[in-house]
């Protein structure tokens, strides 16, 4: 008879524990760093924005209809006031985003439906990566595509049919941006549509519904919250996009809803305010931080809502 082995689970060395603690320490350090960086950025935004609001009352900023941030460098110059009404920038930003979404929503959504519901595995294996290449193109490339191809084309077409189109227009920038965010929408929506349980499709098909009826009446309604989430994420991406609008939308802060005119956006103004040598104690440069804070708050809200919707949707089927 073999003697039963003695059982002992007291650690001979604390090696396991040391490794485990080391790993945890590294992980915590990394995540803390990221969190503190974010907090730092937000704090500096808020701090500088407060400085700005010492020069310009917050109501003038939020409700002013005029944006021309040129302040005098010397006391004796004319036009020393400058006006910091953010509304033209907001309308410009939303105008371009609206054009982009109007283009990207059907494009992205329909390609997602095709990919998720109709494409065979082979087609899918080619098309999905191809669409995702679009997402990998640097935005500056979209920028000169918009400025050199789309904008002249729109202006020529416009003059053919007797419309006056600015050489840099919200439409041109919006179209380029729409192409850019299409893969974002299609990829997210494709995931959402794919996660609709097959059981629901089976139920619908088993009742004698056609594939198209099943998609329209069962799959899309079930996926709708997730799709809405992906659209919101895309919108917040469009609002925050800078390079395309810098190159294609123009710098003139016009309060207009006409997509054929040049408009400017919050991001473009931040870029122009802060590029070059600047003093950081004038209202002009400080206004960039107020704009940044505003942009941050808007996209934060959109993202928060979008994530909330997407998460709620996921829970529904788990």
């Amino acid at each position: 008879m073999e003697k039963t082995k003695t059982i002992n689970f007291m650690a001979k060395s604390s090696r396991h524990r040391r490794v485990e603690q080391g790993v945890i320490a590294v992980l915590i350090a990394c995540s803390t760093l990221a969190i503190f960086t974010t907090i730092g950025i937000i704090a500096s935004l808020i701090f500088e924005a407060i400085q700005f609001f010492k020069f310009i009352p917050i109501t003038d900023f939020l409700f002013g209809l005029n944006w021309s941030p040129q302040t005098a460098i010397r006391e004796d110059q004319i036009g020393s006031g400058g006006s910091f009404g953010v509304l033209p920038l907001i309308t410009g930003t939303f105008l371009i985003s609206a054009v982009a979404m109007a283009l990207a929503t059907p494009l992205g959504l329909f390609s997602a439906i095709y990919l998720a519901e109709y494409a065979g595995p082979k087609v899918r294996a080619y098309i999905k990566p191809l669409l995702e290449i679009l997402a990998g193109i640097p935005t500056v490339v979209y920028g000169f595509f918009a400025a050199l191809v789309i904008a002249p084309f729109i202006r020529m077409t416009g003059s053919e049919i007797g419309l006056e189109v600015a050489s840099e227009s919200a439409l041109a920038a919006g179209i380029a941006m729409g192409v850019m965010i299409t893969p974002l929408i299609s990829s997210l929506s494709d995931d959402v549509i794919n996660s609709v349980p097959q059981a629901l499709r089976d139920a619908s098909l088993g009742l004698g519904a056609t594939h198209a009826e099943t998609v329209a009446k069962v799959v899309l309604p079930a996926a709708l919250p997730g799709i809405a989430g992906s659209l919101l994420l895309a919108t917040s991406r469009a609002i925050g996009e800078t390079m395309i609008v810098v190159m294609a939308a123009g710098l003139a802060a016009q309060l207009t809803l006409n997509p054929l005119q040049a408009v400017t956006t919050i991001t473009v103004q931040i870029v122009t305010l802060l590029t070059g040598d600047q003093e950081f104690d004038s209202a002009k440069t400080l206004s960039a931080f107020a704009l940044g804070l505003m942009l941050f708050l808007v996209t934060l809200c959109l993202n928060a809502i979008a994530h909330q919707i997407v998460r709620h949707y996921r829970e529904q089927y788990d």
């Binding site: 349980p197 059981a199 629901l200 089976d202 139920a203 619908s204 098909l205 088993g206 009742l207 004698g208 519904a209 056609t210 069962v218 309604p221 079930a222 529904q316």
Partner: peptide, 20 residues
């Protein structure tokens, strides 16, 4: 097939009501 499936209904293993 669509008409066929209207004649031959199916009840599945796991209850799968639509989210309606």
């Amino acid at each position: 097939v669509v008409t066929l499936r209207a004649q031959v209904g199916m009840v599945f293993q796991k209850p799968n009501p639509f989210p309606k």
